[in-house]
Design a protein around this nucleic acid. Sequence first.
DNA 1: GTGGTGACGACAC
DNA 2: GGTGTCGCCACCA
Length: 114
Amino acid sequence: MANQSNTDSFFERVYEVVKLIPYGRVTSYGAVARYLGSGQSARMVGWAMNLAHVTDASIPAHRVVNRVGLLSGKHHFIGKSMQQRLEEEGILVKDDTIVDFNTHFWNPEKELSL
DNA sequence: GTGGTGACGACAC
DNA sequence: GGTGTCGCCACCA
């Protein structure tokens, strides 16, 4: 069909999933990547976030961290600090790492039941 | 068209 | 147990 790239790419999928992250919850790049079926392409998720805040500022990229809960992308964030935003959502962040990451972790595979 | 890079993750040594 | 390397796919020069 006519519409191929643009909205059905692996990239767009990342946006959709990230936007589905509920308030006060966080997820990891690997979790999203695995949900998309890429598994080891967690880097793409991170890269997607890079364009995410340029393509769609509505994407809560601050809710996406690496697998240990470390705010790896805080340095890339513009405007308010990533940690600041998380704390405003009730997520405690210490030493650039999410406290009780396991408790706040939002698994797309589980929540989306796929 | 090719090469290099990138907000990660898992494995090997 | 820490360090190093590969893999993965998309974007930029």
